[in-house]
Amino acid sequence: MKEETAQAIVEGLKEGGVNFVVYMPDSFFYDVITKVKEDPGFTSISVPNESVGMCLCAGAWLGGKKPVMIMENTGLFVASNAITRFHQPFGIPVLMLISYRGDAGDGWWMVTAIGHAFEPALKSLGITYELVDNPEKAKKAIQLLQTSAEVSEELQAVVFRKEGVW
């Protein structure tokens, strides 16, 4: 990841009031995760899968934290059970930062199917999302979607495209 992207993401989280970071280790977000772990302004935890992570975020929100879930888009499918049986029926707001594997320009055979399924899955799960392809847009999108997640009590996702920010 570009240093300016990692910095913009961390600044966006801080300015959005996020203070609880749950992450499934992901190569795209490695620099962000490293910065977050070193920053005392965040409580952070690594999880074994994204479903556990999303439930953990939900519990943290219910206890007064402002959570974010950081993950690769593959994890959306792992988390979909929790999303449809917990976050949506209860109305639990969580901001998600998602790397877009299988995006145009990726091309690795292992992730092309995820690329095809990802955006339709976001739409079918009712998750409002914003595609970002530059650091400045990333920062603004994080702040905006964090606020709208809280107000709407729904899930919102900032999706990081291959080009511009990787």
């Binding site: 609880f20 935890i45 439930c55 939900a58 943290a60 934290k65 959570p67 059970n81 929790a82 917990f86």
Partner: peptide
């Protein structure tokens, strides 16, 4: 009480609550 969480969800949700409110 937060009731009726789906399978696989109560314990990680409780963990998040416990982390958010460590005195409770």
């Amino acid at each position: 009480n937060l009731l009726y969480l789906g399978m696989g969800m109560p314990t990680p949700a409780a963990l998040g609550l416990a982390m958010a409110l460590p005195h409770r």
